[in-house]
Write a protein that binds this DNA or RNA. Structure first.
Lengths: 181, 181
DNA sequence: CTTTATAGTAGCGAGTCGATACTATTGCAA
DNA sequence: TTGCAATAGTATCGACTCGCTACTATAAAG
């Protein structure tokens, strides 16, 4: 057992215990993480394929999960005009409420001070970035920290990959095309 | 989104992506973590109930998982003489091989230096300890770091809770009764 | 000796999971 | 323009997890 193995074990147990805390809610772990992703992803990154990539599963599996969330009224699907094959999911108000409830269930305070939490977040993000680089998956980081993101002098934000002007709040959202700067 | 929420998201995605890496093996995530637990737990902590506690699931669910592992020949069950209700699972040689293979599949190097890995492990352990304290579950730490563990002058190790002499290698094993010193 | 607690299991329904095969749409190229 | 390949999503399959309830067997408490 080296550091790497123990870290993996800790991460897996953490995730399991976290999933157990959601037993009270009407949702399971994958459903909550999918909801959380959709709540934070930008308008270019909310298709079944994107959620599947984010969680390392398949389109088929995620399609089922999203359909079950839709049946519960927590997300709604929206067909795109420019590509009629694609779907863009969006949280309903009930979905946002369910997400808030699920997060509230999972105990608020960690007992760790802010500096340690920031350090833990930073190290986890680094570890995840390493894995992403090794396995050729995508990072799904926030738009603002992307290579293609430009904050112009007039305060406008622009994506050089998709060639679109971005709304201010989109700078903090997750993007499937994100490449760390 | 505060630190706590982002940490939870990172941990959950890490665990998902890790599970996806085991797709090639003949095992899924829960089965691997259960095997890993049984490989590292001491002789007092290898019942279905203990594995269930460790992973925050139920006896019934874990019973099924362990039966499926037994059907694959990766673990063997052993009835206890002193309490004929109880079962103690043990990895077979095939089980140890499967565990090694699953770990090898999950990419060796992390790209992080040793100090950062140690720090990440420490912070994850702290975070887990906090959660355990809050939710009233058990820590399952290693024997050597337990309140009931004593290293005597003659080098012998003793557990004051179970009142037994411990073998040297048991000092590093996981115990369901462990309480951090 | 009865009652209660504990350890494990069987069986249920919902849901994930990976895989395959399918439809519909889009894009490319001859 | 037509034809073919790539893409996005889904239906369906079998295996499995998951939480739950009900059950058996054993142990402990009174």
């Amino acid at each position: 057992m080296n550091h790497r193995d123990r870290i993996r074990l800790l991460i897996n147990r953490h995730a399991r215990l976290d999933a157990a805390l959601m037993r009270s809610a009407q949702l399971n772990a994958v459903q909550v993480v999918a909801l959380e992703y959709l709540a934070n992803a930008n308008r270019f990154s909310r298709s079944p394929s994107h959620v599947a990539d984010y969680l390392g599963t398949t389109r088929g599996t995620m399609s089922q999960t999203l359909k079950s969330l839709e049946a519960k009224g927590l997300v709604s699907e929206e067909r795109l005009a420019d590509d009629r094959r694609s779907i863009r999911y969006r949280l309903t108000e009930a979905g946002r409420a369910a997400l808030r409830a699920a997060n509230a269930d999972r105990c608020a305070d960690t007992g760790m001070n802010d500096a340690d939490q920031a350090m833990l977040e930073r190290l986890l993000a680094r570890s995840l970035a390493d894995r992403v680089a090794r396995t050729g998956t995508k990072m799904f980081g926030i738009c603002r920290e992307c290579r293609h993101h430009e904050l112009r002098q007039n305060g406008q934000r622009y994506c050089h990959l998709l060639n679109v002007v971005l709304a201010e709040e989109e700078a903090e959202q997750l993007c499937h095309e994100q490449v760390p700067a």
